[in-house]
Amino acid sequence: MARPISASHDLRRDEILNVAAACFAQRSYPATSMNDIAAACGTSKARLYHYYESKEAILFDLLDRYTQKLLLIVAQVEAKAQRQSLDERAALHELIRAFLREYETSATRHAALLGATQFLGEEPRELILDRQRDVVSAVTRFLRRAYPERLDARNQTAITMTLFGMINWTFTWLRPGGAMSYAAFAEEVIRLLDQGLASST
């Protein structure tokens, strides 16, 4: 009979993913070795291989968990909007706030998603890209519901990507404890978006 996997096994994998994400953000994925990750974890490379068979396996688990988390955020906001009978604009605003709350604690994971997905093998890469497309599609839905008079088939992609352009790269400049908090920035994004898209109504 196979030995059951202990609870500490999953906890250790979480620790490895946290460290690996930081290494990828600092050095880049190609420049980071299993030795680097092991050293940053305070363990041996042999011990690291007990948890992950390769650097790519670490990257995939990191991105697999993170993209699932982003989709879960979408589902949670949709459920909250329905439960609290939020109007469509309020639901979109909640989604923006929820994404930025996540980004505040997931900067290195988000950096890996935007900069290292290309290094996965074809099948795992397509799975992660499909999840990213699902997130983009969900945000487009929120935007179309919030501003039906402004978004149509011609401009919805441009407007959706404008929103992502405002929030997706915060890991490069927005710092917890800095002059502006993530929560305050979320309100600025909402204000810019709402005033810009509502101006022609």
Rank of each mutant, 00 (worst) to 15 (best):
S44E: 06
L71P: 05
S44I: 06
A198Y: 03
T172S: 12
S181P: 08
M34V: 14
S181Y: 05
F142T: 08
S54I: 02
A2V: 09
Y147M: 01
F60H: 14
T170W: 03
L120D: 13
L63N: 13
L151D: 02
I96T: 07
Q26E: 15
A90R: 07
K45H: 01
R154W: 05
S33G: 05
F60D: 13
F171V: 00
T162D: 04
R13L: 04
S85M: 09
R133P: 02
G165E: 00
T117H: 02
T105H: 14
G178H: 15
S137L: 14
V74Y: 07
Y66C: 09
R47L: 12
P176W: 09
I190V: 14
M180E: 11
I96S: 09
F99T: 04
A107E: 07
H50T: 09
A111M: 05
A146Y: 00
S33D: 04
L92W: 03
L129V: 15
L59R: 07
E126A: 01
C23H: 08
A31I: 00
R175N: 02
T105W: 10
K80D: 13
Y103G: 03
I16G: 06
R89G: 12
E122M: 07
R101D: 02
S44R: 04
D87L: 01
I159L: 10
K45R: 10
E56Y: 03
V77F: 03
D64K: 06
A146P: 08
P176L: 08
N155C: 08
W169L: 13
L193F: 04
G115C: 05
A25E: 12
S85W: 07
A75S: 14
A2L: 11
R141L: 08
S6L: 12
P4M: 08
